[in-house]
Design a protein around this nucleic acid. Structure first.
Lengths: 236, 236
DNA sequence: GCGATATCTTGACGGCGTCAAGTTCGATTT
DNA sequence: AAATCGAACTTGACGCCGTCAAGATATCGC
């Protein structure tokens, strides 16, 4: 077993090419972004011929799908961690997952774009779907909790996305997700670059996001619910 | 005139290759999306060699920049039209531009991704910047009007983006933009595809957007301070 | 009419994803 | 322990891609 895991084992057989390719892919995404991402480059870094990864991932889309699955898992873990932290410090849980979402986007923007970009992923991949359903489920759970709904934790984290078609809280879910996803993508895609240029620009944007934007979001949630809340408003 | 409708004048010189390339590019974006977009394919449709466009656009980025400029102009026109319509019918102006934004994304998703995607554009292009500043200005103007501010129309449509760093309404502007941009991108990038699958799915999403989501947005705006307050927010 | 110049073609280069065919090697079997 | 089998990987090729240098051609200014 080698030290780095990216280095070839023997002369011919690699040993763990699948993981080595994923590591290389993450490195390339971090260095060059999704625009400079190339299957050949990843293979090069893994010390392997261009056609070698085909056996493990099928093709480029297969590799991207594996990366996207990791991205969803990262989202789930970061959001859950943010919830736990908010729970401990008395902060708002819903705001916490929104900040976790943004944190993931800022920490690994290349991978985030693989997850949510227009690049095609293997649509039938089971692992990808499970990871996506779980991340989405966390968002749904926290939105519903913020609305005062009672939530079956086990059910919401494995619920089929199509079943949300008749969900009474769909508008609120979409609202929360839109703000979070919109701000995150605009930030990493450079739409807000002119605002970041001046000194302390990015920091001010992040402060606005976790401060005023979250306040407005929570205010909107409190206003005009579709159905009466299960619990009376906790605080106003 | 060729059968395809793409006009080619002489044998050697084209006549208006610049426009022909833009038309071809729009067609390719509409048919194959940004993933299948290729400079050579556009040149092929314009009936011209692969190297011909270089003289008009420099390179691929130059062509994309021209497309993006059209995209911003489209955004501006559609939003202004939506405002005029709302003004005539008594609808809300801010909600109108949000719906106009989504309409542009849905009508020409390929071009929309060129405008806002992570593809590199010519950063110094003056036409692009003017078009972007105007579209952003419309959004800013309507947000400020919704907050009860008085707005210098001429100034806000040509104001430099960096000057918004100290704007007191920046949070509200970002809030509106995040929701609109987030929902639009999620819809055209397929994040909401599971919700669209069931019959009437997309229609329901659009209804939710222009209905409940806009209600929540306006509620959040109303909760925000509408009077110019002496901002006590010093460093955190 | 004629030359300058913008416009377009040709041909080439390296890089890309992917496929078919050949090579090597670990594991299983005997 | 030797033979074997199949998975893992290489090699070489194909058709794309964007871009550049050099040559051909048409348009415009004079």
């Amino acid at each position: 077993m080698t030290a780095s895991g990216v280095i070839k084992r023997g002369g011919y057989h690699h040993g763990d090419l699948r993981q080595a390719m994923i590591d290389a892919a993450e490195a390339v995404l971090a260095e060059k972004g999704v625009g400079g991402f190339t299957l050949r480059e990843c293979a090069r870094r893994a010390g392997v011929s261009p056609a070698a990864p085909a056996h493990h991932f099928g093709n480029l889309v297969g590799l991207l799908t594996a990366i996207a699955t990791l991205g969803f898992d990262d989202l789930s873990q970061t959001m859950e961690a943010a919830v736990a932290k908010a729970e401990a410090s008395g902060g708002d849980r819903l705001a916490a997952i929104c900040e976790g979402y943004l944190e993931v986007a800022l920490t690994r923007p290349g991978r985030f774009r693989v997850v949510f970009g227009r690049l095609g992923l293997k649509s039938g991949d089971d692992d990808l779907r499970r990871a996506a359903v779980r991340a989405f489920g966390i968002l749904v759970r926290e939105t519903k909790l913020a609305l005062g709904r009672r939530v079956d934790e086990e059910e919401v984290l494995t619920r089929l996305p199509s079943s949300y078609g008749g969900d009474a809280d769909l508008a609120e879910i979409l609202f929360v997700w839109s703000i979070t996803h919109g701000f995150s993508t605009m930030l990493i895609d450079g739409q807000l670059a002119p605002l970041e240029m001046q000194p302390g620009g990015r920091e001010r944007l992040l402060t606005l996001y976790s401060g005023r934007l979250m306040d407005m979001l929570l205010a909107a949630m409190r206003a005009a619910p579709a159905e009466p809340l299960a619990n009376p408003a906790s605080h106003g």
